[in-house]
């Protein structure tokens, strides 16, 4: 189908974009890569009266490592991560994750921040940002505020963003060489949304896990941390503890039935994905 009619604005600055959101209120939506918004408009599940296209705001087109932080501007496309954007475990992780997102042409337009703003439960970038304890920089009428990834995801397609605000940037810590990061997902076909995924970040001290974070995606309304599964790794050799961590993740999660997979099947997938993500981290 075709999208319903709307008014289109292409501001040149973040201030102009935020002012447009203020003027048009609930009617207005940000248009970034369009790779999720335009399909929902074509289905008429979304009928925004005003689109604020941020693609012509040069200040949002940045991706840089600064003081151990990776700063991802709102116009950074998924494809920018296909090759490591920084040395170390995080750059390598992002490159392994990126190729699981949709297909090459969609990765050329879809944006990292658009994925975080859209908050699809099966978004790879959402689970990754949660596992890495990223920070989201939100721009509003009073300037910017920071939101921790753990506070960002509130439900299916629902985030901590307030009316009149936009996501300007996501910051990820560039973890040091004592960290290992791993990823695994299961999707029916290349490029499909995953039925389950796991992202892990482990800090090793003399081969044993000193700190661990595990995020799950694709199984419920929003990506979630698996703190019990992470705790099972502490003080252990990751290879030895991978299976018991995976069991805890499966026992602790609450997957949903849907047309793609029953809950029990998803729970089995969680177990396998967590184990594989830990193995991926050690191998990396």
């Amino acid at each position: 189908m075709k999208p319903a009619a709307f008014d289109y604005h292409a501001p040149r600055t973040v201030e102009e974009a935020v002012a447009l959101l203020a003027t048009h209120g609930e009617e207005a939506r940000i248009l970034a890569g369009g790779q999720s918004l335009v399909p929902t408009m074509a289905f008429r599940m979304a009928r925004p009266g005003v689109l604020v296209d941020i693609n012509r705001i040069p200040d949002l087109a940045f991706l840089r490592a600064e003081d151990g932080i990776l700063r991802i501007g709102a116009l950074t496309r998924h494809a920018a991560f296909e090759k490591p954007v920084a040395p170390g475990p995080v750059g390598a992780l992002l490159a392994r994750v990126a190729r699981h997102i949709a297909h090459a042409p969609i990765r050329q337009r879809g944006t990292f921040c658009g994925s975080l703003a859209h908050a699809d439960p099966a978004s790879e970038w959402c689970a990754t940002t949660l596992a890495l304890s990223g920070t989201l920089m939100v721009a509003g009428p009073d300037g910017q505020r920071a939101v921790a990834a753990e506070d960002w995801f509130q439900g299916v397609f629902t985030t901590a963003i307030a009316p009149g605000e936009m996501l300007a940037e996501v910051r990820l810590p560039l973890l040091g060489p004592d960290w290992r990061c791993g990823f695994a997902e299961f999707a029916r076909r290349a490029g499909d949304f995953a039925l389950a995924m796991a992202v892990v970040a482990l800090r090793l001290d003399a081969g044993r896990v000193a700190e661990a974070r595990i995020a799950l995606g694709g199984i419920g309304g929003r990506p979630e941390l698996a703190p019990d599964a992470a705790a099972a790794l502490i003080g252990q050799l990751p290879r030895d503890a991978a299976q018991s961590s995976a069991e805890r993740a499966a026992a602790g999660c609450d997957p949903q039935d849907d047309i793609h997979a029953p809950a029990d099947y998803r729970r089995d997938l969680v177990r396998v994905m967590v184990r594989r993500a830990i193995e991926d981290a050690i191998a990396a």
Binding site: M1, Y8, L31, G34, V38, A42, D53, Q108
Partner: peptide
Amino acid sequence: CEHGVCGACTVLVNDIPTRACLMFAVQ
């Protein structure tokens, strides 16, 4: 499909492959 899944509408925009059903002409 007109919603991004089939790729029949793929064109090159500034040499980048693009689903032309997911981009507005004004863009």
